[in-house]
C-alpha cells in the first residue's frame, strides 16, 4: 500500500473520534441513540441550545477562563525571569523542579494543598484554583523557555552588556525578542494544559468556581443519558485548546520536546 494511502487511513483513524463527537453534538436525540449509528442525519442545534439554557455553561466557561488565564499569567511572570536567570547562571534547579513537578502524581500535591486550603478556608475559591494551576503552568513555561534562552549565543548578551544594558534590560530588550516564538508556545501550552487539567479542580473547586472540565464530568456523573448534550459540551470544551494549538502548530512539537531532549 502506498505511503499516502496508509497516511490517509491513519489520519482518518485519528480524526474519527473527534468527528464522531462533533457530529453527535449536532444529532437529534433519536439520531444520537440510533443503532446502527446514523452517518447521514439532519443537523440540529437543539443540543447546544438546551445545554446553554439548562446549565450554567457560560459561568463554568468564565471560571475556566479566569483560572487558566490567571495561572498562565502567573506562570509567565514567575517563569520567564526564572528561566532567564537559570540559563545565564547555568543553574540546574529549575530544570530539576520542573522535572519533579512533572513526575510526581497529582495526589502527592493535592493532599497537602487540600489540607492547607481547607484550614485557610480557601477550598472552592479562585485563589486556591489559580495557585494550584500555576503549579502546572510554571514548569511548562520553564520547560519551554529554558532551552530557548540557552540557545541564545552568550556573545549576544555580552554585546548587550557592553552596549550598557543591565540584566533586566538585556532580558527585556534582547533576550525576550529572540525567544518570542518560544514565549508564544509557552503561553499557549500553559493555557491549554491548565484548561485541560482536571484533578486539582475536581477537589478544590465548588459549584461557583467549577471549571468546564469538572462541570462536564459531573454532567456524566449525573447518570445523564443526554448524549447529544454531552457531546455538545465536549465539543465546546475541546474547541479553545484545539484552535490555539492549531494556530501555532508549526512550533508546538518543538516546544514540547526541547526540554525533554535537554533534560
Amino acid at each position: 500500500m502506498s505511503v499516502i494511502a496508509q497516511l490517509v487511513i491513519v489520519a482518518a483513524g485519528i480524526l474519527f473520534p473527534i468527528i464522531w463527537m462533533v457530529s453527535s453534538s449536532f444529532k437529534s436525540s433519536a439520531d444520537v441513540t440510533a443503532y446502527p449509528p446514523t452517518f447521514l442525519f439532519r443537523p440540529t442545534l437543539e443540543n447546544y441550545t438546551r445545554l446553554l439554557q439548562t446549565t450554567p455553561f457560560f459561568s463554568y466557561a468564565r471560571n475556566s477562563l479566569i483560572e487558566s488565564g490567571s495561572s498562565t499569567l502567573i506562570g509567565l511572570l514567575l517563569g520567564v525571569p526564572a528561566a532567564y536567570a537559570a540559563s545565564i547562571t547555568r543553574s540546574s534547579w529549575p530544570a530539576l523542579v520542573t522535572l519533579s513537578a512533572r513526575m510526581a502524581p497529582g495526589t502527592l500535591f493535592l493532599i497537602p494543598w487540600y489540607i492547607v486550603f481547607r484550614d485557610l478556608g480557601m477550598v472552592g475559591t479562585y485563589g486556591a484554583l489559580i495557585l494550584t494551576q500555576a503549579a502546572i503552568t510554571l514548569p511548562i513555561v520553564i520547560w519551554v523557555l529554558l532551552p530557548a534562552f540557552d540557545a541564545i549565543p552568550r556573545s549576544i548578551l555580552e554585546a548587550a552588556g557592553v552596549d550598557g544594558c543591565g540584566t533586566l534590560r538585556s532580558l527585556w530588550r534582547v533576550a525576550l525578542p529572540l525567544v518570542s516564538s518560544g514565549l508564544v508556545i509557552a503561553t499557549i501550552l500553559a493555557f491549554v494544559f491548565s484548561w485541560n487539567y482536571f484533578l486539582f479542580a475536581l477537589v478544590l473547586s465548588d459549584e461557583n468556581t467549577k471549571p468546564l472540565v469538572v462541570a462536564a464530568f459531573n454532567y456524566i456523573g449525573e447518570g445523564s443519558t443526554d448524549w447529544g448534550g454531552l457531546m455538545a459540551a465536549a465539543t465546546l470544551i475541546a474547541l479553545p485548546p484545539l484552535v490555539l494549538a492549531i494556530a501555532v502548530q508549526r512550533w508546538l512539537v518543538a516546544g514540547l520536546t526541547l526540554g525533554a531532549v535537554k533534560g
Binding site: 473520534p17 463527537m21 485541560n196 472540565v213 457531546m231 502548530q249 508549526r250
Partner: peptide, 25 residues
Amino acid sequence: AILRSILISPFMVPPVVVGMMFLII
C-alpha cells in the same frame, strides 16, 4: 498543514473530553 493539525489534535483535547468521546463510541 492539515495533516499536522490532525496529528496534534488528539493530545490537545482535554482528557476529560477524550473520556467522554470514547464513552459514546
